[in-house]
Design a binder for these strands. Sequence first.
DNA 1: GTCAGATGTTTTATTAATAAAACATCTGTA
DNA 2: TACAGATGTTTTATTAATAAAACATCTGAC
Lengths: 172, 172
Amino acid sequence: MSAEVWKEYESNEISHSVAHHLAAIYELMRDQGYARVSDVARALDITRGSASLTLKALKAKGLVVEDHNKFLKLSEEGKGIVDAILGNRAIVRKFLKDVLKLDEQRAEIDACKVEHLLSAQTGVQLLHFVRFLFSADPIAKQFLTEFWERSEEDILSGDLLESVTSLLDAEK
Amino acid sequence: MSAEVWKEYESNEISHSVAHHLAAIYELMRDQGYARVSDVARALDITRGSASLTLKALKAKGLVVEDHNKFLKLSEEGKGIVDAILGNRAIVRKFLKDVLKLDEQRAEIDACKVEHLLSAQTGVQLLHFVRFLFSADPIAKQFLTEFWERSEEDILSGDLLESVTSLLDAEK
DNA sequence: GTCAGATGTTTTATTAATAAAACATCTGTA
DNA sequence: TACAGATGTTTTATTAATAAAACATCTGAC
């Protein structure tokens, strides 16, 4: 793997922590109508001091704006970022849970870990795919039924890398 | 989202950096037969000093072992971890590139970002899924053909979160 | 009006991963 | 043999995200 590719990770503008600070504001606004530093800290289970510092940085970056009364909200740019992240989370979770049939908890955790790292294109394409999978199209219905049936028998032996490698090799 | 879920991220035993140090050793061993601190540093495009410190920690954790001549290799545990990570990378990349039809570079970068974060169960289930998709089964073939045909017209309007939300709501 | 409790900020410290620079060691060539 | 170049380590500094503790401010109950 090339160094340019692996170093993309660090250049990700939105860290996991930042993603969740922004998402917390979004959810607090939606659920209780307002969001203060303390509310964010409580929601994320971190200290107020920590939230205060991270949110100060986000205000400086223009992703979060503050009321005359210290009430926080997302800027337009902040909203756009949260939208992409929560969109990715929702579609990945659905795919893992309802297509791959991972248990709820696993799907939730994995989706939460990758939501801020997947590109918007990936989210959009996955949405297309899942939408077609669950559409009324008989081929899609048949495909899903057969996949799930088959999953019950088909138990993987050996290690993952080897299995994937042989799948990839088989194509050529 | 619950705090227990989002904090799982930090508790991930393998960071992106560690994942790539381990993978570099694996690939160097495979490609040139040996791996030293300098080789790893060069492969990752970081300084020798940095690689030295990170690898020291990995030796202390028992994931990497060192020759009498400073040659590095993976322990059994280290091998297991690399196996899971490269397995995840390979299957995610294939899914993104050959099913969702994302361009090569995008698929590579996204797979690289999430490879160490996805659970083994997710990797295994995705492998099952992709294997069936590309199997000789006529339903799978038909399904893929129709999905790709449809993709050409079906352009998404509006924002991702809204589209996913309406997909999710539609089910109930 | 006072005091308790909640809220917000700042300062100090920690951790992981990095760079940079100084230093030590090893190796091969002239 | 001596020196150049590669290799490995250590030390110092930086950054992001955290905790903890000290501090300031605000608010509401009595």
